[in-house]
Amino acid sequence: MYAVTADAAAAWAELFAWIAQKSGVALETIQHPTSLPMTALWTRPDLGAAFMCGRPWSRAEPRPVPIACPVPAPPRYEGAPRYMTDIVVRADSPFQTLEDTFGHRIGYTLEESQSGFNALRHHLLGYRSATRPMLYAESIGPLHTPRGVVAALLSRAIDAGPLDSYAFDLMRAAPGDPAHGLRIVATTSPAPIPFFVASRPCPQHVIEALRTAFLAVEEAPELATIRDRLLLRGFNSVFEPSYDLLGAWDAEALAAGYETPR
């Protein structure tokens, strides 16, 4: 989910090797291509630590077991395990505000996504009215991933789109990344960040060993460079009730008859 650049992917691999050594749990990296639905990953019975968005987790039955959530290091996260959605446009576009993008084309990632769908819809809800029930001429998706949104913007297939703020920060940390061709016109309210989960059948002692290792990342001196590369402060335990916010945003939009960001 956050292996959005070559360096970030390499840093995550190094971090997982450290987690495996620290916890004593043998972890095997699973490649999950974007052509496959994320539910195919999250319903696997052999997950030891996989990133999962809070929106599908809160709707899953049974729910995978939370392990730990990342705390991004940039100041805008205020040292908390949260993230936002940046609504972005091309750097050379004439749009200066979110309202300028109305009447054009908005993109989204997946209906099951918090950052790429639910947060976007919740933010736009405040701009709708009886005389303006639709804000955009077109709603284009699914674009599947933040990289899909970046590509759609730069190819001019859409005029504005949502980006997971932590993923966007990681992209912009890489010199020459295509994401530098975008700029932010609005940012949503913060929400609890995606977290690592284990499959429900995973033994409790394995889950506890992994959680202990993740919680040790912040203070491990040997991980300083990896934390810097991942814009990561460390990890916290998952406070499950905080994810009720995502369902509340969903219910509010549906009660208003606003099913798809548009």
Rank of each mutant, 00 (worst) to 15 (best):
M1G: 07
Y2I: 10
Y2F: 15
Y2E: 11
T5H: 12
E14M: 07
L15S: 06
A20L: 04
K22G: 02
K22N: 07
K22Q: 15
G24V: 06
V25P: 05
A26V: 13
I30P: 01
P33K: 00
S35T: 12
T43F: 01
D46E: 10
C53K: 03
R55D: 03
W57V: 07
I67L: 15
A68R: 08
A68V: 12
P70K: 11
V71G: 05
R76E: 14
R76I: 13
Y77H: 13
E78I: 05
G79W: 03
A80Y: 08
R90H: 08
Q96I: 06
E99Q: 14
T101R: 03
F102Y: 04
I106N: 00
Y108I: 07
L110A: 06
E112S: 14
S115L: 01
S115Y: 00
N118V: 15
N118C: 08
A119E: 05
R121L: 02
G126N: 08
S129H: 06
S129F: 09
L135A: 05
A137N: 10
P142I: 02
A152D: 02
L153T: 02
L154Q: 10
I158Y: 04
D159A: 04
D159H: 11
P162Y: 00
Y166D: 07
A167P: 00
M171H: 01
R172A: 04
A174I: 00
G176W: 13
G176L: 11
G181L: 11
G181V: 08
A186P: 02
T188L: 04
P194M: 12
F195L: 09
F195E: 10
F196N: 12
P203G: 05
V206I: 15
A216F: 01
L223A: 01
L232F: 05
G234V: 10
F235L: 08
F235N: 04
P241Q: 01
A248F: 11
W249Q: 15
D250E: 15
